[in-house]
Design a protein around this nucleic acid. Structure first.
Lengths: 227, 227
DNA sequence: ATATTTACATTCATTTATGTATGGATGTAG
DNA sequence: CTACATCCATACATAAATGAATGTAAATAT
């Protein structure tokens, strides 16, 4: 079996148009590679021009293909968009699990703090950064896609995980006196949400890990009980 | 002079299409009224369908006009969009001035806190709410419009005003010990930004004034110096 | 070895939005 | 009372994107 994942076959035509006049069918591995290439191209073009203004023709050309390839691998633009988001999906709960497993910490507040730090690290990775920027700042609704509902689902899911930790911390008396876990949750979630929004709008304006990390630590210092 | 602002002339045709086959020119006041009607229609259609998917035809029909009216009053879609934003523009500094004038408070921290409350009240007004929702969640770049740059300008301007207040508060020893005014600024701005984003995405999910107000008070309680 | 399916490229028909050009009736200035 | 400018409606030309249909050579199954 000809396993050749990750490299498209070329036939001398170095231009970024269709590979040749009668380019034939590829092996399964090559087909999977072109699917990924199409997703990469969609990521770039969506990011640069916005989802609405990005045509499937531009995306296909950017990947060295034609629209035929897109319509083979994806139903339409919306389907392509969904596939794009699925590549970077990561529930906040899994970030918490990761922290719980790697570090031997049992304090719910410390676990949460580290998970927040890790979420910033995640979102700095180019693919995650661009994809989140697309979802937050570069797409409106179209066909059956409602990015606002998607964002809502993500936020609520994240809030739920945060609340579980802060509720636990509150029960252990770790929170500042008079601070309800519900309030602490909104405080943390809104701050992180705003921070990420601001940074994604202009990543060059400030270093996310540094300033964001300091902000997280400051907030956790403020909401923690201290003698 | 026939002053008749706020009411379009009808000629028996109650349908929402063009008023009549050969509807003539209006008075200056009527023309200004249709301009406002077009902006109202744009606000609604942009909000419902997103800026990219909203056609000028739909907007015109929604106002009981045709595209001819739009192209008379505005250069193109981008110009219409700009005019829409100008209706609700309000710098944060003016909110601060308003507080300084109406209340006799001289504490920079209290002034800032009240201005934050007032900003929530402002954004709950239907026109402000819809327009901000359009800018934040319902438009991508198109032609010469870059909503991300617009958002950036607004945020930086707001940050600047907040920082002036917090810097002043810090110099007066009003901030919690060890809390830099730069950090406090980011904390407050990110939280407010995230809060507004979340609320605009789904205004029914929680009451902004109540929960947001409580959040503001909590945060100011945390960042203030207290014996 | 043949038949079939796969993985695209190419072509075509349709839709949709835009910008402009033109027309026409009335307000308004003189 | 005329003349012109204003405020729109209508008509037209153009462009761009979509989705479906079709073609096709190689991979794969039989």
């Amino acid at each position: 079996m000809n396993v050749n994942i990750g490299a498209l076959r070329y036939d001398g035509d170095k231009e970024s148009g269709p590979l040749s006049v009668t380019m034939p069918r590829r092996t399964k591995a090559e087909a999977e590679a072109t699917r990924e290439a199409l997703l990469d191209a969609a990521e770039e073009v969506f990011f640069d021009k916005g989802v609405a203004r990005a045509s499937l023709e531009q995306i296909a050309r950017h990947a060295g293909m034609t629209r035929g390839a897109i319509y083979w691998h994806f139903k339409d633009k919306a389907d392509l968009f969904h596939a794009l988001l699925n590549r970077v999906r990561l529930p906040f709960e899994e970030l918490l699990d990761e922290v719980r497993e790697t570090s031997g910490i049992d304090s719910p507040l410390e676990t949460l703090r580290l998970a927040c730090h890790n979420s910033l690290v995640r979102i700095e990775r180019p693919r995650d950064r661009r994809t989140h920027a697309i979802l937050l700042h570069r797409c409106e609704f179209f066909s059956d896609i409602n990015p606002l509902e998607m964002q809502n689902r993500l936020v609520r899911e994240c809030q739920k995980s945060m609340y579980k930790q802060l509720r636990h911390a509150h029960d252990l008396g770790l929170l500042a006196p008079g601070l309800a876990p519900e309030t602490a949750t909104r405080l943390l979630q809104s701050m992180l949400s705003g921070l990420v929004h601001d940074w994604l709008r202009d990543p060059a304006s400030f270093p996310l890990r540094d300033e964001g990390g300091a902000l997280i630590d400051t907030l956790f210092g403020l909401i923690s009980w201290n003698a």
